[in-house]
Amino acid sequence: MSIASDMLRGNTDMIVLAHLLHRESYGYQINKHIQEKSGGRFELKEATLYGAFRRLEEAGCVSFYWGDEQTGARRRYYRITTAGRETFAQSVGEWREAIDLIEKLIDQKEEEKENGR
């Protein structure tokens, strides 16, 4: 499981963008969504998630606005920008390539075939 959680943390930006593709959202909602989609196995640390928001904001991938919650603290709502959509498409492409490559590198069937010859 540690590989999965490392990868999850390393790709927080992409996961956040994926969530924002279809809706505007805020920190806790995104984290809850990740938790539900992973069947309760994963949850990002808040600090990790908000660090990702800062990076995405700075790169122009998301814009934000403050909610008007009356009680407690205001939520910071995020929406994806056109640049964010482009970045997301690009990252997903790179991700698939990387996975493909790793799959090839660790594939045992190929190895067995080669050794058997």
């Binding site: 806790y28 908000y50 800062r54 919650e69 407690g72 603290a73 939520r75 910071r76």
Partner: peptide, 20 residues
């Protein structure tokens, strides 16, 4: 300003989670 905003956001997140 950025730190103050992050802190408010974090507080909102914590309160949301707590309520949930």
């Amino acid at each position: 300003r950025r730190v103050a905003e992050a802190r408010e956001e974090l507080l909102a997140g914590c309160l949301d989670k707590y309520a949930d």
